[in-house]
């Protein structure tokens, strides 16, 4: 019997893990509940990626072609994990959907990713009420589909505001963690917007700007220096509407005090939450969650992919908010950890 590994989730982390596991000599089955591959990158049609402004479609092509052309990788889209049992370190995994069968796996990589926070859960932003209030992911879809226009009337926006930390760092909505990438993604989006809207006022409303490491000058500074984007320190208290335009209410904590400020378009930098699939798979494979609901890394520093259940590994945003580059790196980390785990058990 060959040694088989199941990868659950076909976003950047899962696709990378599948390819690397195959290179290491395993037979791989990738199970993806959606009909498409590529996870959030595909769902929101990311065209330009943070941090390096490289092409989203090109990344997908690279990740997907590798798994499609690999005879040792089976791709099961439209398929979900129904039931899991375990006997003598072998997982017996029953699938439902397009490939309803039972598969024996020696190890499992959970790459079940994240969901964006739904801003309708926090009423103060008026999301779902005012059509010109959209999420960052919806802005990405706008970039993909055509020119940037106000959803309410199809006009070119003369002013755009980004609101940071929507659904992140906020006890009121139950998410006390930072989602890590939204600051830098918003800065990237503001630079892209500037190309389309040379005269628009673009303002960022933040409580901290967390453009970690090398993203500081390449995104945060660049958005100011090259794109003329203005940063205002103040968390938005509420969004209302006047004369058909959304109005931001808040305090400019550093300079001007209280404001009520109309904008043509509002972009909510909605944070990341553990996906439903992450919760479901954690339960089915009996791995613990950490306090925020992501899959708990058993040894955060030793190895990012170890869970507290031997034979079950994690990669990507299933274990916490993460950039695409880190998710792909973790796909490799998990593959090596699987190799390490299985080499002692079976002859490759």
């Amino acid at each position: 019997m060959s040694t088989s590994v199941m990868v659950i989730g076909a976003g950047p982390a899962g696709l990378q893990a599948a390819s690397t596991l195959s290179h290491l000599g395993f037979d791989v089955t990738v199970v993806e509940q959606q009909q498409y591959l590529g996870g959030a990158v595909a769902r929101h049609q990311y065209q330009v990626l943070m941090p390096d402004f490289s092409s989203g479609p090109e990344l997908l092509r690279h990740l997907i072609e590798r798994v499609n052309e690999d005879p040792h990788i089976k791709i099961y889209t439209g398929t979900s994990v129904e039931d899991v049992s375990e006997s003598r370190d072998i997982f017996s995994i029953t699938l439902s959907g397009a490939h309803a069968e039972t598969i024996q796996s020696h190890a499992v990589v959970l790459a079940t990713g994240f969901d964006h926070f739904n801003p309708a859960r926090d009423g103060k932003y008026g999301y779902g009420i005012f059509p010109d209030v959209i999420t960052g992911a919806e802005l990405e879809e706008m970039f993909a589909k055509g020119p940037i226009r106000r959803p309410s009337n199809g006009e070119v926006p003369q002013s755009v505001a980004f609101i940071y930390c929507v659904g992140s760092r906020d006890r009121q909505v139950g998410n006390t963690y930072c989602s890590r990438v939204c600051c830098a993604v918003s800065a990237k989006q503001s630079i892209e917007l500037r190309e389309q809207l040379p005269k628009a006022r673009i303002s960022m409303f933040y409580m901290d700007v967390r453009t970690y490491g090398l993203w500081e000058d390449s995104l945060y500074w660049r958005s100011q220096e090259e794109a003329g984007v203005v940063y205002v320190k103040g968390r938005i208290a509420e969004v209302t509407e006047q004369h058909g335009r959304p109005v931001l209410k808040g305090e400019d904590t550093l300079v001007r005090g209280p404001f009520e400020w109309p904008f043509d378009l509002i972009v909510l930098a909605a944070g990341m939450e553990p996906s439903r699939g992450t919760h479901d798979m954690a339960k089915k494979f009996q791995v613990s969650l950490e306090s925020h609901g992501f899959i708990k890394q058993a040894h955060t520093i030793h190895n990012a992919s170890l869970t507290d259940h031997p034979g079950v590994f994690v990669a990507g945003a299933a274990s916490g908010p993460k950039a695409i580059e880190d998710s792909i790196a973790e796909g490799d980390v998990a593959s090596l950890a699987v190799f390490d785990y299985l080499k002692a058990k079976v002859t490759l």
Binding site: R169, M207, D208, G234, A237, G250, T253
Partner: peptide
Amino acid sequence: CLNCGVCSGS
């Protein structure tokens, strides 16, 4: 306190 100003803004 994160000095975010959401209290004063509200």
